[in-house]
Amino acid sequence: MTIHGMSTGSTEENPDALLLERIKAGDERAFAQFYDRLSPLLFGLVFKILNDAREAEDVLQEGFLLVWKKAASYDSARSSPFTWATMIFRHKAIDRLRARERRDRGLEKAALEPLPAAGIDGRPDKTAWQNETRAAVHAALERLPEEQREAIRFAFFSGMTQIQISEKLGEPLGTVKARIRRGLLKLREYLTAT
């Protein structure tokens, strides 16, 4: 199986890449399909970062407008559409988070919550690849040592700086950096081998 996001951006193996090619040409229908395919996942992501539905929806709107604007800059040789889009939305959400200094305890707690079960707020997923990929990512994360899993989840979702993560986890900065490195390298290895 090829993990969505670990594959190339080739249009032959990735329908999102084909949609992005059409979006580059100004195709609104392709944009609507791209939105349908990715918005639940991306909305879930930005909501998890911001912990605020209204803000998350603002970021989702800004993010998709950015997708429309920046589709021409997408480089299929560098990343998959999923990775490209995810990093855009994560970046925007963390910018919002930092700007408003919303690092409250609830958010930090959310970053450490147990891995959620698959599903869209209790509804079934529309796309099989999301279920398959989610299961694979969960399985890969479960193989990581707890401290590495915790470190990369903090790094991805919390919007904290290195030092803040170190303080939050109560570990020396060097230890936290090493955990992030090892955890991310292993995650890559496990997902690639899936």
Partner: peptide, 13 residues
């Protein structure tokens, strides 16, 4: 790509 896959651990909405 590995980092982006962490998005899958957020519950879709």
């Amino acid at each position: 790509a590995a980092a982006a896959s962490l998005a899958h651990t957020a519950a879709p909405k």
